[in-house]
């Protein structure tokens, strides 16, 4: 799994900081790191989710100009939160509940970023929330329905 996670980060980084960054500057767009954190936390286990959160968080900390650790703590915190609510309050196999978790994650992340930057750009919030949910739905469908990952990992049928 660690190789897969490293491959994902190698793919996500140039896309996020290149064309997606240009798009985000103009209109806003999906947060690939957050969606990936949600996917690893929702579809795999705690170890994989935390490992991903640390890898992605450290990569973001290296690339951005915020205080080092900001992104790592944020992604690790969100991964722990999703892992906690997933088993207790949400049904893993429910798409609606999975997307609700992603929505909450996105809101928390945007709130933290807005508090840090003192910027509350509502159109950016709206676009990021909707694009994250759309991307999450597509990824969930591909990974969970097409590849039947749930059946493999949890024995649950969608």
């Amino acid at each position: 799994m660690i190789v897969a996670q490293l491959l994902v980060i190698l793919i996500i980084l140039p896309i996020s900081y290149g064309p997606l960054g240009e798009l985000t500057l103009r209109h806003g767009g999906p947060d690939l790191f957050l969606v990936a954190t949600w996917l690893f936390a929702w579809l795999t286990d705690r170890t994989n989710a935390l490992r991903w959160a640390v890898i992605a968080g450290l990569a973001l900390d290296l690339l951005n100009f915020q205080r080092f650790g900001f992104w790592t703590f944020q992604l690790v915190g969100l991964a722990i939160l999703v892992d906690y609510v997933r088993g207790r309050y949400f049904q893993v196999s429910s798409l609606a509940e999975a997307l609700l978790a992603l929505l909450v994650m996105t809101l928390i992340s945007l709130l933290i970023q807005s508090l840090m930057t003192q910027q509350f750009i509502w159109p950016v919030w709206l676009i990021e929330i909707s694009s994250n949910v759309l991307l999450g739905t597509i990824m969930y469908y591909i990974l969970a329905v097409r590849f039947r990952l749930f059946q493999r990992w949890f024995g649950q049928r969608l």
């Binding site: 900081y17 960054g21 947060d31 690939l32 790191f33 910027q119 990021e128």
Partner: peptide
Amino acid sequence: SEFSPFGNYQTLT
């Protein structure tokens, strides 16, 4: 070299 992928930041590197 890079555009921030986070809309709240409005920065580039």
